[in-house]
Nucleic acid binder design. Structure first.
Length: 490
RNA sequence: CGGGGCGUGGCGCAGCCCGGUAGCGCGCCUGCUUUGGGAGCAGGAGGUCGCCGGUUCGAAUCCGGCCGCCCCGACCA
């Protein structure tokens, strides 16, 4: 199995999804393992995707009134320890700096696992009056959580993310903010990633350490497991109390501010791979692809090469003018086939082949990375028409990826009464990803389900995702008080 | 942290049981011929066999300890 036959492709997803994922990520050159335990190197192709994600998200944050700022990497240990649930949640995975400048530090610093504490300590300095609120900041940063078991992009010890932190005068305003950003995440995942998530609230046991309410986007991966792709928290006044974040209200009273925090990380890149990838490799949606179109000139003799190069340059120029991110692969030591495989593994949405035959006809061959049923993969198109039609072609592909992912999510979702834990387990074993059911609200039921099936409540779905007929029975027996969605999660 | 697997040129592996000249494929370099789905031939470079210690005339191989990586589980907004 290690010979040439194996080298031609990845381990099929159906055979070993985990092996497929690792191979897909590495062969697409998204990331590589590093000498540092649990920390990966994000390579240019992977980082390019992240940069495109950042740009889109950053624009959305700005459009909703937020500004960027930057806070220190190191946080005094005492800060983390101040909020009781927060410290309990994060203590086990903290990396601590105890020694610097050649001597032991008086107070250790932790490498931020998240920045609530240091940010709200600063907000406390900046806020005196209700007129200073709201504060709407975001930071792009790296954070560190010493995870016991890591996986490329999905869970690494160090990862890149953005964390939004806001302070408001009222609870209603804070909750509105938390929900607004949940909606921003959802739009981003749908419109840019083609990864339609379920959104809703977290149960008590799954919420963020220190939050009053947590909201999340949960996406269904191709292996039927859920990926928590983004979270937004209404922190109440928990941190404000610990850090003295108070303001004088319009009525002259001293009050604690209400906070929110929200974040998405490089984990999204892993989600992208597991949403759209196939047995050939990664598939990157056009809006996020660092290169949307790869032009491959094909020629034997020097004269042929000169002719196809010229045509390739014309196409690259034309596409560039049309706002398409395009590149020509002019390496002469590689055969066309080798280049085809390489770019397919990386997931470039469209390839344009230009050989002597095409030049003679004034055509190019346009090849799609993914095809709809019944659609030709390769297509000879007049050069001018190929260039002019490319933006529309890319948008169509973007839309198709979203629809395919939505269809997979729906096919992997079970709705209807689930009246026992055994039945829930059978549904999950039978291929269901998201299983809707009723729930009494009793944490003991969650615990029992987890024991028996390894599934957890991913969300208490928002209105739009609830079933037409609300479930009446709780999976643990008795009456349901709400609808929940179960899944085995990453 | 529990269980399993694995550390040998850049990558993937064989050799280890049974101690004795370190091997294969891919990749890389040079030359020539090639280029429409992973090119061919010829020549070449590249390895203190994860680390430390022990046994032995002699250790990739046997013994002890340590370190690291991957997978499953536990843990993990």
């Amino acid at each position: 199995m290690t010979g040439p036959a194996r080298r031609k492709g990845l381990t099929p997803r159906s055979e070993d999804f985990s092996a497929w994922y690792n191979e897909a990520v590495q062969q697409a050159e998204l990331a590589d393992y590093s000498p540092v335990r649990g920390s990966m190197v994000i390579r240019p192709w992977g980082y390019g995707i992240w940069e495109n994600m950042q740009r889109a998200l950053d624009d959305m944050f700005k459009a909703t009134g937020h500004s960027n700022a930057y806070f220190p990497l190191l946080i005094p240990m005492s800060f983390i320890e101040r909020e009781k649930e927060h410290v309990e949640g994060f203590k086990p995975e903290l990396a601590v700096v105890t020694h610097a400048g050649g001597k032991d530090l008086e107070e250790p610093y932790v490498i931020r696992p998240t920045s609530e504490t240091i940010i709200y300590s600063m907000y406390a300095k900046w806020v005196q009056s209700y007129r200073d609120l709201p504060i709407l900041l975001n930071q792009w940063a790296n954070v560190m959580r010493w995870e016991l078991r890591t996986r490329l992009f999905l869970r690494t010890a160090e990862f890149l993310w953005q964390e939004g932190h806001t302070a408001h005068a009222t609870e209603a305003e804070a909750d509105e903010e938390a929900l607004r950003m949940l909606g921003v995440y959802r739009s981003f995942m749908e419109d840019w990633m083609g990864m339609p998530p379920l959104t809703g609230a977290k149960s008590e046991s799954e919420k963020f350490a220190g939050a009053v309410r947590s909201y999340a986007c949960e996406a269904l991966m191709q292996d039927g497991r859920a990926l928590q792709a983004g979270t937004s928290h209404m922190l109440g006044q928990n941190f404000a109390r610990q850090f003295g974040l108070t303001f004088q209200s319009e009525q002259g009273r001293e009050e604690y501010a209400w906070n929110t925090s929200w974040g998405v990380s490089t984990r999204l890149v892993g989600g992208l791979v597991m949403t759209h990838g196939d047995d050939v490799g990664v598939v990157v949606p056009p809006r996020l692809a660092p290169t949307q179109v790869i032009v491959v000139p094909i020629g034997r003799s020097d004269e042929q090469w000169a002719a196809v190069r010229e045509a390739a340059e014309r196409v690259v120029g034309g596409l560039g003018d049309a706002g398409v991110r395009v590149e020509a692969d002019t390496r002469r030591h590689l055969s066309p086939g080798a280049k085809f495989f390489e770019w397919e593994r990386k997931g470039v949405p469209v390839r344009v082949e230009i050989g002597p035959r095409d030049v003679a006809r004034g055509e190019v061959v346009v090849v799609r990375r993914v095809t709809a049923p019944g659609e030709e993969r390769k297509e000879g198109v007049g050069e001018g028409r190929a260039v002019a039609g490319m933006p529309a072609r890319l948008e169509a592909l973007q839309g198709r990826l979203l629809e395919a992912a939505r269809a997979r999510r729906e096919a992997g979702t079970h709705r209807g009464e689930v009246s026992s834990i055994e039945e829930l387990g059978a549904l999950l074993d039978g291929g269901a990803g998201f299983v809707h059911s009723g729930w009494s609200g009793d944490p003991a039921v969650e615990e029992r389900v987890k024991e028996a099936t390894r599934a957890t409540i991913r969300v208490i779905p928002g209105e739009e995702f609830r079933s037409a007929a609300a479930p009446e029975r709780c999976v643990g027996g008795g009456k349901a008080r709400m609808e929940v969605v179960w899944a085995r999660a990453y």
